[in-house]
């Protein structure tokens, strides 16, 4: 078994038009910039993208939106330092938006990966985001039913990865990625360091390789925050 891939292009070759994609990252931390840009090179269309945000500046998810690849964003906070790409597309009606409370987004992804079709959360009860979702009382408090969230493909950024797909992350770049790895039919991670089997101590594995289909080394990866501070744009 060897899940190593030769290039970001090989990792995103599985993304087809109309698919639902989970993309790791919270702001720039954990954003798999090289995988996203390889996907932009492929020009997949009609995508639903699940991420905490909706892009910043003109790289990464923002660049996907500018290229007209995104039909819908499912996120908690579609604002950023420079949200112009999403804001313009949203105002033009070019992209749909589903705003989900951040913890509900995380738990819906976790549930999707864990085979739990629905769960109840207090978040959003009595607010417009709960809409007409079913509610139920438990121990005297009211809760909103939320459904699982699954994807066709997850694209992640990790720190180290081995040939079995075991992953570790770097600091707060971990965020949604371990959850997304479980909730997609196929999960691909760009790793800053590809290491040999056994080089990640079993006690330290964060995402076990069973959740990962492909690993591609991108050494010295771009950091979205730094790209934005440099005024970068893609392509």
């Amino acid at each position: 078994m060897d899940k190593r891939l030769s290039s970001p292009a090989a990792a995103v070759a599985h993304v087809g038009d109309g698919m639902t994609l989970m993309i790791g990252g919270f702001g720039g931390a954990g954003a798999p910039v090289e995988l996203i840009h390889a996907l932009i090179d492929r020009r997949a269309k009609g995508l639903t993208v699940v991420n905490n945000n909706a892009g910043n500046g003109h790289v990464g998810i923002a660049a996907m939106i500018e290229q007209g690849m995104v039909e819908k964003m499912i996120c908690s906070y579609p604002r950023s330092a420079d949200p112009v790409a999403f804001t313009r597309a949203y105002r033009d009606g070019a992209v749909d938006l589903e705003v989900v409370p951040q913890g509900t987004l995380a738990e819906r992804i976790r549930a999707g990966g864990a085979g739990i079709p629905a769960f109840f959360t207090p978040a959003g009860f009595g607010t417009e985001l709960a809409g007409d979702k079913p509610v139920e009382e438990f121990d005297g408090r009211m809760y909103v039913r939320e459904n699982w969230l699954k994807a066709d493909v997850a694209l992640l950024k990790a720190e180290t990865g081995d040939p079995h797909g075991n992953l570790t992350y770097r600091m707060a770049a971990r965020n949604f990625s371990p959850l997304m790895a479980t909730a997609a039919k196929k999960t691909f991670a760009q790793v800053s360091r590809a290491v040999a089997l056994g080089d990640i101590h079993p006690e330290h594995v964060v995402t076990p390789g069973i959740f990962v289909n492909g690993v591609v080394e991108v050494s010295r990866p771009a950091q979205e925050e730094i790209l934005n501070r440099q005024g970068a744009a893609y392509p």
């Binding site: 720039g28 913890g103 976790r110």
Partner: peptide, 25 residues
């Protein structure tokens, strides 16, 4: 920029800090 808070501002770590994923958070 991998070490940021929810406002996406850079932070530092104190001794005894811990990282975890969003479902745990």
């Amino acid at each position: 920029w991998d070490l940021i808070n929810a406002g996406k501002k850079a932070v530092t770590l104190r001794p005894g800090a811990a990282f975890f994923h969003h479902a745990d958070s």
